[in-house]
Design a protein around this nucleic acid. Sequence first.
RNA 1: GGACCCGUGGUGUAGCGGCCCAACAUGCCAGCCUGUCACGCUGGAGAUCGCCGGUUCGAAUCCGGUCGGGUCCGCCA
Length: 638
Amino acid sequence: MTTPAASLATPYRSHTAGELRASDAGSTARLAGWVHRRRDHGQLIFLDLRDRYGISQVVIDRTATPEVHAAASRVRSEFVVSVSGDVALRLPGTENAKLPTGAVELRATELVILSESKTPPFYINDPDAPVDEALRLKYRYLDIRRQPMADRLLLRSRMVQAIREVHHANGFVEVETPTLIKSTPEGARDFIVPSRLQPGSVYALPQSPQQLKQLLMVAGVDRYFQIARCYRDEDLRGDRQPEFTQLDLEMSFVDEDSVMAFVESMAIEVSRATRPDRPIQEVPFPRFTFDEVIERFGSDKPDVRFGMELVDLAPALIDGDGTPASGFKVFDEALAAGGRVKAIVAPGMAGATRREIDELTERARRFGAKGLAYLALEAGGEVKSPIAKFLVAEVQRGIVDVSGAKEGDLILVVADTTVITADVLGRLRLGLGDRLGLADRDVLAYVWVDRFPMYKWDEESARWDATHNPFSGVVPDDEALLVTVSGDPASPSPEDPAGRARALQYDLALNGWELGGGSIRIHRRDLLERSFLLQGHSLDAMHEKFGAVLDAFEFGAPPHGGIALGIDRWAALLSGQTNIREVMAFPKTQSGGDPMLEAPSAPEAKQFEELGLRFVGLPPRVRDSSGHADQKRDEVEV
RNA sequence: GGACCCGUGGUGUAGCGGCCCAACAUGCCAGCCUGUCACGCUGGAGAUCGCCGGUUCGAAUCCGGUCGGGUCCGCCA
């Protein structure tokens, strides 16, 4: 870890444990830190002293300093000590090339035990030792003492530092927004905080500062950013925590290109500041439309570190007058029904075993396909496939040609609706890419995806649902599409032209993960109302939910747009992790608990009384020592 | 809400119906050791196998429930 420019000397230490070099030999020094390891040789004791900055070897000689030796004999792993002594070159041949401080050692003349330590519950001095994650979370302060966690938190700190620097250099103003706000319909469930001063009312924790930042645009802030904590009360995953951090930004008088250009330069800067060792695959970042990435990668957040793109087999399956005529009913019917027959080519997998094929088929089914067809292109050009008998030779050849498969490759085919075909093949592509090691783990492949559909039809509530932000603007050419067949925006149907409208929406993806998304917002009240009506909001409901923004838009709203990026995911990707808990100091478990603080916990009766609340149904569960849940009714009834 | 996986000395694992009141490594404790750096050597302590119940002559091992952790689907930007 790096030592900052400023001196870290204090009464407890003259140097850090990572600082001493051969050039310091001959001087005296005082170090403070944790005992990383103790090696007792009888007359001689070696201590490895560790702090955030490194490790230094301390030597204690019984004959020279008997009282220091006595103190060092008591010392154990993770004791906190302060040692002073003479910095000396190590005896020739005993230098340790593995340590930056390995040329020298501190010959102790004084050793003070600042605090003792119990035997830690897991190995702090072995960065590779596997430890149960529940235990790591319970003793997170010890986990963070370990090198890998410490390194990741440092990377995250540098990342946020770089983000702030770039924004300030580009005229952005950092503004804090409240975390006790009004419930906003972002789509996810809100965390609720009951109000004591206004009993019966609740605050919501923000799912994002979306409305507040738009209000800041109306306020003339012009360029705003914030490292904002956000909250969503939904089920958790490795890449989802109930509270997480977003880089939230918004700019006035901009179009898509302005926002993307800034974000891109910022992302490059941040990547280089944190991971100069990892190359960015392509600059400027490649930019795809939503339709294109779905067509080519089967995902709206494509991993473009490898090829294996989806190919359309239709040209090989239809005859001269455009009717499906492959001879294989599954293919022909899918095409006749307006669906697709598409494939991916798994390089070198023609020899896949029956078992491997079955596994792939099983996965395809889990992802929603009815089945998975395959053709193995064997050496010599012979096609082996269980469906070969249905396909005339010409069609077989056509499939091979269109797919671009070479000898030794395996062609995997899905025939289904457009959506399922893309989804299933997209997921199979990622799985195979992983298994075949196609993606370079060092590369950072950022991509932009834009031109998302404005709405998707929601069967359940029979209305158009905003695919992303409800304020997202529409592509100017598509403005005329914001209409319904019925003519009344309040009576939508799945046939409406609105379903074809594209949004001024852009997502940034990195190595197959969505980092975040943004849009140019609708700043005109009339367009906003039309869009909201299409989304099934009545004008009253609209005011209830977005009143402040709608009001503000009547006082001169500048055209504006912005983006929000997930800091946790970004930090995880930059540090080569797939789980965002690894880049959070104190994350929660999958059930939303903190094993260290033991949160959440049963409230005190008095707290509920003041809020005018009472539990109905199941009272909260309290754990006893056996891990058994116990219902402690008495503690919560008021 | 659903599916699946895991839970054995401090830690990581092995054992998966009797050979196990449980093995290995490491850690811990004690003694020895003047050049180690995952120091070494000798000795020792330490788990009744998450919890509850069942099957069985017999359970760490099989079954059910439960608690905790994780992965995935639903959900969620």
